[in-house]
Structure formats: C-alpha cells, structure tokens
C-alpha cells in the first residue's frame, strides 16, 4: 500500500482503456496543484507566511513548493501586509508583469481593506488598484487561514473555464482597473 494520496479524477466517462473528460477540467486540476505563489510580503502577515512556509504548516503540501520571487513565473500573487500609497505602484507593476492566468490573494486586513490603518499614507485595500480573487481576513491571519485561502484559490483554479480570460466580462474588469 502506498501512502501517497492521489487526486480524485474529474468527472468523465471511463471504459475499457479510455477515460474521457473535458480539457478544462484536466487543466484546472493540474493548475490547482502547482500554483506558484509570489509572496509579496510587506509586514506582519509576511511573518505568518514564513510560519506557513516552515515545516510545521508546510505550504508545499498544496503544490506551492516553489515560491516564485519573479513575477514572470508566478501564478498567484499573495499580497501580505500593509500596502502604503508609496508602495501601490510597485504592486501594480508586479501584477502587470505576471502572465495570464493569474490570481491574486489579499492576505490580512491591511491588504483587504486598509485594516486599522485608515490614514493618509495607507492604500485602503489593494482591490483599488488590482482585481482580487480571494480575501483572507485576520490581523494577521493564522497560517491555517492562509492555507484555507490558498485552497480557495485552488478551488477557483480548478473550476475556471479556459475561456474566462478571453471573455468580455473579464476584459471589462481589467479595463475598470485601467489594465490592458
């Protein structure tokens, strides 16, 4: 008996020597288990992310073995910590450098809404400059919550249609953020 756990196959038709399913689902399954996160850690939540990366919580179990510090190779932008207005252009730049498909996770209250820092120097949530897929609450969130957020992104990835990124709706979304 192997102790390796296998992912369940997507819905489909199987018979003698064949298994038929839609390409969407196969690709979604593959993608969701090899998300390369770009840890954009600025403050306290970044320290909790370090704990998530450590041996105890081990984010690698979810296919995120390799944190990709280069935006070009990353699938998931994890924004962790306060984003000041001085930092906002940098976040946007990093997002623009990522290749489609890309997902964004706002970890912690500051990245989601500005948190307790409703001040002149803090951006009130990163969704003012880039579209966000998953918000993780907490100040800072526990590593379990960050993992839960990652699993939510996996869920999105698994069920995303291959055409979504070409759809008009998506183009409108990007346009509303002035992203071409």
């Amino acid at each position: 008996m192997s102790s390796v756990k296998m992912v369940e196959a997507p819905d489909g038709y199987s018979g003698a020597g064949f298994f038929a399913t839609s390409l969407d689902q196969v690709i979604g399954m593959a993608r969701s288990h090899s998300l390369w996160p770009l840890p954009f850690a600025t403050s306290c939540c970044g320290i909790e992310f370090m704990a998530t990366m450590g041996a105890h919580y081990d984010i690698s179990r979810f296919g995120s073995e390799r944190p990709s510090f280069s935006p070009r190779q990353a699938d998931l932008l994890m924004v962790m910590g306060t984003i000041a207005k001085k930092m906002a252009p940098v976040v946007k730049q990093v997002y623009l450098q990522m290749a489609e498909p890309r997902w964004v996770m706002a970890v912690g209250a500051c990245a989601s809404s500005g948190g307790i820092f409703d001040t002149y120097s803090v951006l009130q949530g990163i969704d003012r400059i880039i579209p966000v897929d998953v918000y993780v609450p907490g100040c800072p969130p526990r590593p379990e919550q960050i993992l839960e957020g990652l699993m939510q992104v996996q869920e999105l990835t698994r069920n995303e249609s291959l055409r979504r990124r070409n759809s008009e709706e998506y183009q409108h979304l990007l346009e509303s953020y002035k992203i071409q």
Partner: peptide, 11 residues
C-alpha cells in the same frame, strides 16, 4: 524607505 509608512504617530 517609507514603503510601509502607516502613520503610527498620527493615529
């Protein structure tokens, strides 16, 4: 520096 200036002293 100042990329996460959060204005603690003002708050």
């Amino acid at each position: 520096i100042g990329y996460i200036h959060r204005a603690f002293e003002k708050i």
